[in-house]
């Protein structure tokens, strides 16, 4: 056996797995999406049917808001944690990354405990304002849940990037007269941009596709994964749920590709 054919032989298992578990189901999904009463136009329904369009928009908005707020919170916290040493720092970092260990269902459960009908926030507002504040079962509860599990994903990337920052750059900017704000704006944030793109893409993709949290909070939240689930299990509408799945994939992929072209480096999708 030549060296070359040996290498090809070694690639065979990878090829088999790729075909069996990736390409075939994907192809089947794409075909199923076009098998509805409207045929290929079923895909257009994602955009033309008001309910689908609204849900799609909702999902993208939710994922975008999650990404932006996560980046802001994680950057401030990550920068502080990387630059300061204080007792309990290691425990704090461990706690901040703890949500990585929870499935979406548990996160949803925690949001209910916090902002549900029997939740802490409700109890507190009831005592102070005489009115129960309950938002766990809405898109706001979902937003809070997504924030909770996106922050650890982002904060570790940001901390690693902050560690690699050349402190000389900040000192140079200061020596030239830059105020602390100007140093952040002109030196630190631009230097962290690749980390923002990489970790923001992960947060975005996770928020686009997460299902467990939404499912735990309520069955009528308008996000795409929930819509796919209801179309599939309740309405048995295979073609529409397939078309929606492909749509979700393409939109997420497009946004990740966009982010990748900005950062120039590989961005891994997760979730």
């Amino acid at each position: 056996m030549s060296h070359r054919s040996f290498v090809w032989l070694c690639l065979l298992p990878l090829a088999a797995v790729t075909v069996a578990f990736f390409l075939l189901p994907m192809a089947r999904l794409v075909v199923t999406g076009a098998e509805g009463p409207q045929g290929l136009a079923g895909y257009l329904a994602i955009l033309t049917e008001p309910r689908y369009r609204a849900t799609l928009l909702n999902t993208v908005l939710l994922a975008t808001a999650t990404t932006i707020v996560t980046l802001i919170v994680a950057t401030v916290a990550g920068m502080f944690l990387q630059r300061h040493r204080f007792p309990g720092r290691a425990i704090l970092i461990a706690m901040l990354t703890f949500p990585l260990a929870f499935p979406g269902v548990v996160v949803g459960f925690m949001i209910i405990l916090l902002a549900g009908r029997q939740g802490l926030i409700g109890d507190f507002s009831n005592r102070v304002l005489g009115e129960k504040l309950v938002f766990a079962y809405s898109i706001y509860g979902l937003f809070l849940g997504y924030l909770y599990f996106s922050i650890p994903r982002v904060i570790l990337t940001i901390m690693a990037a902050v560690q690699k920052l050349d402190t000389g750059l900040e000192e140079a900017a200061r020596s030239l007269g830059a105020s602390p704000w100007a140093v952040q704006r002109d030196v630190v944030l631009p230097a962290l941009a690749p980390a923002f793109v990489a970790s923001g893409a992960i947060a975005f993709a996770t928020a686009m596709g997460a299902f467990g949290t939404a499912f735990t909070l309520a069955t009528n939240i308008d996000v795409l994964p929930m819509l796919i689930y209801t179309e599939f299990t309740l309405a048995a509408n295979f073609s529409v749920s397939a078309a929606l799945s492909v749509g979700l994939g393409i939109i997420t992929w497009l946004i990740l590709a966009l982010a990748r072209s900005f950062s120039g480096s590989a961005v891994a999708a997760a979730g």
Partner: peptide
Amino acid sequence: FQSYALFPN
């Protein structure tokens, strides 16, 4: 600075 610390952006 020894590393020059020029702004790469």
